[in-house]
């Protein structure tokens, strides 16, 4: 069997916004959600002329000369778990190469992945950073076009297996910024993902599709309020707001 190949939107050799420390990030092409507030809409379609195919050896070779400068690698997207066999093969190669073995391997995911996918990936991954777009199904549908069953199942499993390193809440004014919803999200996380850091991200129109461009950007005060509502559940020490 020939090794799986990946469809890559882009790589960022050094990133300090995709997990702890300095990380090499591979953005994989294709997503299974259709988020109104997506900041990388060009990574959504499964095929686009802007994406390119990449082999495991090639992507490993891009990391090797940089390994000394990195805490680890992150796969992001799009939705990286859609290309689970490729991600697994790349992580395995990173683990087995002495030059890259010390790097931590993180997955940035929207949580829409089956148990089989996690069965394949979790033994090879050090951590997952998960987006929770909304706790309520109706709001989740409004924001992403899909329900959140699978997201919540993933979140709970990742927390149980100690692989959930961060939950990200993108708060979009007028859609998922209600006090009640955010308080219940905080309570939910306190119960199902105790001790996991939560990042509250205020919506920014930069890079989004035309349909979302008129949504206002929350003020710093509003962002602080969102964070406080979530913190009422999970505790202030675990919440950071950006």
């Amino acid at each position: 069997m020939s090794p799986p190949r990946g469809l890559l939107a882009d790589v960022v050799p050094f990133s300090w916004v995709d997990g702890p420390g300095n990380r090499f990030v591979a953005f994989l092409q294709g997503c299974n959600l259709d988020c109104l507030a997506c900041h990388n809409p060009h990574t959504m379609p499964r095929s686009t002329p802007r994406a390119r195919e990449v082999g495991v050896a090639d992507l490993l070779a891009q990391v090797r000369p940089l390994a000394a400068f990195l805490s680890g690698v992150t796969v992001s997207g799009g939705e990286a778990t859609l290309q689970a066999p490729f991600v697994a093969a790349w992580f395995e190669a990173l683990r087995d190469d002495p030059a890259t073995a010390a790097l931590t391997r993180y997955i940035d995911s929207n949580g829409c992945a089956t148990d089989e996918v996690w069965d394949l990936l979790l033994p090879l991954a050090d951590g997952v950073m998960l987006d929770l777009k909304a706790l309520d199904v109706a709001v989740h549908v409004a924001l992403t076009g899909s329900g959140n069953d699978r997201v919540l199942t993933s979140l709970e499993r990742l927390a149980r297996e100690d692989k959930l390193v961060e939950v990200r809440l993108l708060v979009v004014p007028g859609i998922n910024d209600g006090e009640d919803g955010l308080r219940r999200t905080g309570d939910y996380l306190a119960t199902h993902a105790p001790g996991v850091p939560v990042t509250v991200i205020g919506f920014r129109p930069h890079g989004v599709r035309a349909a979302a461009r008129d949504i206002p950007e929350p003020t710093p005060e509003e962002r602080a309020r969102y964070a406080a509502w979530v913190a009422a559940g999970v505790g202030p020490d675990l919440v950071r707001v950006v």
């Binding site: 050094f14 300090w16 940089l66």
Partner: peptide, 11 residues
């Protein structure tokens, strides 16, 4: 993410 700068220094 100051650890990222530490990583770059060590690297």
């Amino acid at each position: 993410n100051p650890q990222a700068v530490v990583d770059v220094i060590r690297g």
